[in-house]
Design a protein around this nucleic acid. Structure first.
Lengths: 224, 224
DNA sequence: CGCGACATTGAGGTATCTCAAACGGAGTGG
DNA sequence: CCACTCCGTTTGAGATACCTCAATGTCGCG
């Protein structure tokens, strides 16, 4: 079995499971209609200011949305995991670019096709739910960037990751630079805060990309 | 044309076109149905986590939305001017509180009443447009907080204010503390950046709450 | 005129950034 | 199986943008 097929199997299994992800008929329809595309690490899925007539859904891997300032400074808007929808815009174009954090498989389909197949109401519910989720997460992110210290930002980030997967050990799909650009920090500061959190016995890293929460209360407290 | 198509058309039109202000029939209806309420400076219009079954519209004055961290740090989400809608939430409760920046008059009405009067479709249009505007502004704000310097933040802020009112002289409805909490800075840093911008002959302050753009290109450049 | 609130300015401290070097782990070749 | 390389991460030392605390200035209003 190919790597991609395996990924697709895995994604289906996890889809059947849990929550927070769209569970409407429209979402189910996506599985039948969409095209599965593989993207290599750091490959662009769509660019900033490109037309936004497609809807995307992560099958496996992770995706980031990002925006560049003219001098190269980068802000990451959000990360998307398996089953997350992304790329849904109200305006005609994408306001952030989207790239593959690591190798990943994405389900892509035309918004108009889904609308025709799912019906207006179901389609609209999907858009509404996705947009709201986006807004809520962006508002939380805003508070983090505006008023939290480096340590609090990193703690919040780890907490956010851990909440999604209640498993004991959590995997970090992204590297330190991606974390830094999400948190409005530098790579070095992120690294220092991580070692600091380890020193405080709040989290424990088994490798650079995998950790376990040693003291959930303490982490929650540090995230404010 | 289907309901959904109409909604998307409307959203795209208002996005593409001018600005941000509701121009649908539903918005017109608000004027007839709503209750006008006066709020004094710093008075709370609604609190965080309160039920969100009302829709608000600024008639005169200005409004800010804000969120507090447990230790008193404050982040302002956005400012709303005359004719702006605010308080529209996807979820059941408000995620930010809303307060009067100065004395102001607000049009308030029940969301359910507007839906009944304007019709489902027009009502949805209004919600969709308002939510999208919110998301777009929040994303811009995010970039500002994550990756801009103090000077760039202040320049962006003044630019944003000036864009809304193309008049020669622009009024600042909010004090320095509100600006600081919007920009993720302290009051002193905001003040210093303002005098710095004045020194560079980019803007000119006639009073603490009123300025004129002396060099729009330079200001735009500094806002990145 | 004088009070009170708000804004500006100053001096010193600190969290975070920058630059640079050392470390580590995964993959490769011997 | 070990040495080697490469890339991402960590650590260190010094610089700096922004913050904090404190004093001074300014405007609006009774």
């Amino acid at each position: 079995m190919s790597a991609v097929q395996t990924q697709i199997q895995t994604a289906r299994a996890s889809y059947a499971g849990l929550m927070a992800r769209p569970q409407t008929e429209a979402a189910d329809l996506m599985w039948q209609m969409g095209v599965r595309m593989a993207f290599a690490k750091d490959e662009e899925i769509y660019g900033q200011d490109e037309d936004a007539d497609l809807i995307y859904r992560v099958i496996s891997g992770a995706v980031r949305t990002s925006r560049l300032l003219s001098d190269g400074r980068r802000q990451i808007g959000d990360f998307y995991d398996a089953d997350d929808l992304f790329g849904i815009e109200a305006g005609p174009t994408h306001r952030y670019a989207a790239e593959a954090v690591g190798d990943c498989v994405i389900l892509v389909l035309k918004a108009s096709a889904l609308r025709a197949a799912a019906g207006e109401e179901a389609f609209q519910n999907l858009l509404w739910a996705a947009t709201n989720r986006e807004l809520e997460r962006t508002q939380e992110h805003l508070l983090l960037l505006g008023r939290k210290t480096a340590c609090e930002r990193v703690a919040s980030f780890l907490m956010g990751l851990a909440d999604r997967r209640p498993a004991g050990t959590v995997n970090l799909p992204m590297g330190r630079q991606d974390m830094a650009d999400y948190l409005g920090l530098t790579i070095e500061t992120v690294s220092r805060m991580l070692t600091q959190l380890q020193g405080a016995l709040v989290v424990e890293f088994t490798g650079a990309r995998e950790f376990r929460i040693a003291n959930r209360c303490a982490l929650a407290r540090m995230a404010t």
